[in-house]
């Protein structure tokens, strides 16, 4: 006890002020930081935007070999009803030939349906090959006209500057002919 008094005895006032000022500054800084969070968070997606974060798509009108584009969270999603040949091509590729190795199995839930986000992983253009007659690139998938990326029938990057496969969104099949994306 007496030691404590001695050690701080020189300038008790100074020490107390320092601690008090420091503590007050700390509380003030923390408070200011917390006050900023609501403003930052207000720029995150709002509740009405989140409520529309999933779409349901009816697949019954897509013939084998055809593909459609649907809008999901402001981006196109490609849904392709793959032919037997396309499925086989996708499954037969050796993983060591791929830039971003992934099996076809890991990219689909039902073999005949391929669902990918239609945004080129290079610089965000929309690859061609969904509508009938558009160039599908060298691997029966999609071809991005911006910088010449070729995707295969599993949406994987095979040639060109893009670093990643086309992204697979989360989706679930509600029935055999309807799927919920997101």
């Amino acid at each position: 006890m007496s030691q404590t008094v001695q050690s701080s005895g020189d300038k008790p006032d100074e020490n107390r002020r320092d601690f008090l000022t420091l503590a007050t500054t700390a509380v003030g800084v923390v408070g200011t930081g917390m006050a900023l969070w609501p403003f930052v968070d207000s720029m995150n997606p709002s509740k009405d935007v989140l409520a529309l974060a999933s779409v349901e798509v009816n697949l019954s009108n897509i013939a084998v070999g055809q593909a459609i584009k649907v809008m999901w969270r402001g981006k196109p999603v490609f849904i392709r009803h793959r032919t037997e040949r396309e499925i086989k091509e996708a499954e037969d590729v050796a993983l060591n030939q791929l830039v971003d190795p992934e099996t076809d199995d890991a990219r689909v839930k039902k073999k005949e349906w391929l669902i990918v986000v239609g945004v080129c992983t290079h610089l965000g253009c929309i690859p061609m090959g969904t509508a009938t007659g558009e160039p599908r690139g060298d691997f029966d998938g999609w071809y991005c006209p911006c910088h010449g990326s070729h995707y295969d029938s599993s949406g994987r990057i095979r040639k060109g500057p893009a670093p990643k496969n086309l992204h697979v969104p989360t989706y679930t099949f509600l029935t055999d002919t309807s799927v919920k994306i997101g």
Binding site: P38, F39, D41, S42, N44, S46, K47, D48, V49
Partner: peptide, 13 residues
């Protein structure tokens, strides 16, 4: 009203 109901902390701002 969207600010008041749907935007995060919109009512506060």
């Amino acid at each position: 009203e969207r600010i008041m109901r749907d935007v995060n902390y919109g009512w506060l701002i």
